[in-house]
Simulated assay, not measured.
Amino acid sequence: MSPTEIVIVTVAVLAVLAAAVLIWNFVRRRNLRATFGPEYDRVVAERDSRGAAERELRERERRREQLTITPLSEEARARYAAAWEEVQAEFVDSPTTAVGNADELLTRLIAERGYPSGDYAEQTAQLSVDHARTLSRYREAHEIHLTNERGEADTEQLRQAVVHYRALFAELLGEQPIHPPAPAQTEASTR
Rank of each mutant, 00 (worst) to 15 (best):
S2A: 14
I6C: 14
I8Q: 12
T10E: 07
V16H: 13
L17V: 11
A18C: 14
V21D: 11
V21I: 15
I23G: 12
W24S: 10
F26P: 06
V27N: 09
R29M: 04
R30D: 15
L32V: 00
T35K: 11
F36V: 02
F36R: 00
P38C: 05
E39T: 04
Y40E: 05
D41I: 08
V43F: 08
E46M: 14
E46Y: 09
E46K: 08
S49G: 06
A53V: 04
L57W: 14
R58M: 14
E61N: 15
R62S: 07
R63V: 06
R63D: 13
L67A: 04
T68C: 14
I69Q: 08
P71C: 08
E74Y: 05
E75A: 06
E75G: 14
R77E: 00
Y80W: 03
A83D: 08
E86N: 12
E86S: 08
A89C: 06
E90T: 15
F91L: 01
F91N: 01
V92E: 14
V92C: 15
V92H: 11
D93V: 15
D93P: 09
S94C: 13
P95A: 03
T96D: 09
T96E: 09
T97I: 10
A98T: 01
A98R: 00
D103N: 11
E104D: 13
R108E: 03
R108F: 03
L109V: 03
A111G: 15
E112H: 10
G114V: 02
Y115Q: 04
Y115H: 03
P116R: 00
P116M: 07
D119Y: 05
D119H: 14
Y120R: 06
E122W: 04
Q123A: 11
T124I: 08
A125F: 04
L127C: 03
L127K: 09
D130I: 13
R133P: 02
R133D: 12
S136A: 13
R139Y: 10
H142A: 07
H142W: 08
E143L: 14
E143P: 08
T147C: 07
T147H: 09
T147I: 04
G151A: 04
D154W: 10
Q157T: 08
R159G: 07
F169S: 00
E171F: 00
E171M: 01
L172K: 00
G174K: 05
P177F: 03
I178W: 06
H179T: 11
P183D: 12
A184W: 13
Q185C: 10
E187K: 14
A188G: 06
S189F: 09
R191E: 05
